[in-house]
Nucleic acid binder design. Structure first.
Lengths: 134, 134
DNA sequence: CAGTATCCCTCATGATACTG
DNA sequence: CAGTATCATGAGGGATACTG
């Protein structure tokens, strides 16, 4: 069964490549910052500490689940700290760590490229779509 | 029905925010480069033009579907060109455009941050997981 | 060689309801 | 206020088979 064997070889290669990518730092970072809410939360915290409800308000459209989940993720990664103040009602503040702050220039780079070049991309899309329509 | 109305208001806000994000250049760029295969293909083409089969070989683990789909996406965005040479068998070469090349420094920035700081992130995770386990 | 077409399936996200 | 728990869905991605 050469076909079956070839398929297996391909799948093995795919799995090995997946494993390789999983260990790639740049890939791990991209996995983080590509998350819809990660950059929004980090950017929101650039101005200083924020409470949970502040974040929920600033980042309209985020569900409680995703906000909590993403905050936990970022806390685990050492990008922000979670400070609970025992009171009634409870108060929880989130703040960027120096590591989290160090991410801001990178986000700024991405923003720069986007603001400089995304209109070219949009133009290219228009051309592509126009030609394809004919 | 105040509950229902409140839920609707929240959903409207979420939709409006989605629309806002869809028009955000930085978000659009992140949507592109966060794609697993986009950065790999762009990086592979940094060395110069490559044929379809070259790319398939270099980027082990990519399916034909995703390779073709991603190449079309990048062509549409004006990041690379597709050059078909009529012959038997057909030959297709892909090459970065200047716009595509301009993306390379940004990818390098991301790589730099990752290689500089991802070990700190990994360390933070270890601490977090260790504390959580107790 | 360089694709296209199809099916299938998982996994991430969001809505909803409940709580210390 | 700041979450947790549960359920549903839908879109992205892979496997497979076929083609100019």
């Amino acid at each position: 069964m050469p076909t079956r064997a070839a398929a297996e070889v391909r799948q093995d290669a795919a799995r090995a490549y997946d494993a390789y990518l999983a260990s790639c730092p740049a890939r791990q970072l991209l996995d983080r910052i590509s998350d819809k809410w990660v950059t929004l939360i980090v950017s929101a915290l650039a101005d200083g500490p924020q409470r949970y409800s502040d974040l929920a308000r600033r980042i309209a459209g985020v569900s409680q689940k995703m906000l909590t989940q993403t905050l936990r993720l970022l806390e685990r990664d050492g990008l922000l700290t979670r400070q609970v103040t025992a009171a009634v009602p409870v108060r929880v503040d989130y703040e960027l760590t120096p590591l989290g702050v160090s991410l801001l220039p990178l986000i700024a780079c991405i923003k720069d490229w986007a603001e400089t070049h995304m209109d070219e991309v949009a133009a290219a899309r228009d051309v592509y779509d126009t030609v394809a329509a004919q």
